[in-house]
């Protein structure tokens, strides 16, 4: 199959359409007949990254490439960047404000959920420049 490419805009602080990109990708993968386990892992990883961009990154972009072996997702924002990535990767650590916590987010599980569900996770971040989260999920595990 040829590579399927999709690009989505992730709005800042707009929870009415947050998750639409992940939902769209989930639909594409299901239609392609990708195994439910892979669809779920991809959906969780992408949704968490998408929500992070909404909450922390002033919104951003999602770029998705699907070929016969894998899905690659790049979520990029021009937000404040992550000051201490090791700390941010720790489960339970969160800088989300109370308003976000009241919605059920901000448990400090986003990045660790991405790590658990992605086969490859690479995060590039720079203070006051932004963050790029690169996620790859293979359709068949080695």
């Amino acid at each position: 199959m040829s590579t399927i490419v999709r690009d989505y805009t992730i709005p800042a602080n707009d929870f009415t359409i947050a998750g639409e990109a992940s939902s769209s990708v989930r639909k594409i993968l299901s239609q392609l007949g990708v195994s439910p386990d892979v669809v779920k892992r991809t959906s969780i990883a992408m949704y968490e990254a998408e929500i992070n961009a909404v909450i922390h990154g002033n919104g951003g972009m999602a770029h998705v490439e699907i070929d016969k072996n894998k899905i690659y997702i790049r979520i990029s924002d021009e937000g404040p960047g992550i000051a201490d990535l090791n700390l941010a990767m720790q489960e339970g650590y969160s800088t989300a404000p109370d308003s976000i916590r009241e919605m059920g987010f901000g448990a400090g599980m986003g990045l660790s959920n991405i790590k658990k569900n992605a086969d490859v996770l690479d995060i590039e971040t720079e203070i006051n420049k932004g963050t790029i989260v690169n996620i790859t999920v293979f359709f068949k595990r080695e």
């Binding site: 009415t16 947050a18 939902s23 989930r26 439910p36 919605m103 059920g104």
Partner: peptide, 17 residues
Amino acid sequence: ITVHTNLNVIAVASLTN
């Protein structure tokens, strides 16, 4: 089961099937 009733609940429900 969740006490949250915001839109994100539907996104999570949809993603987890």
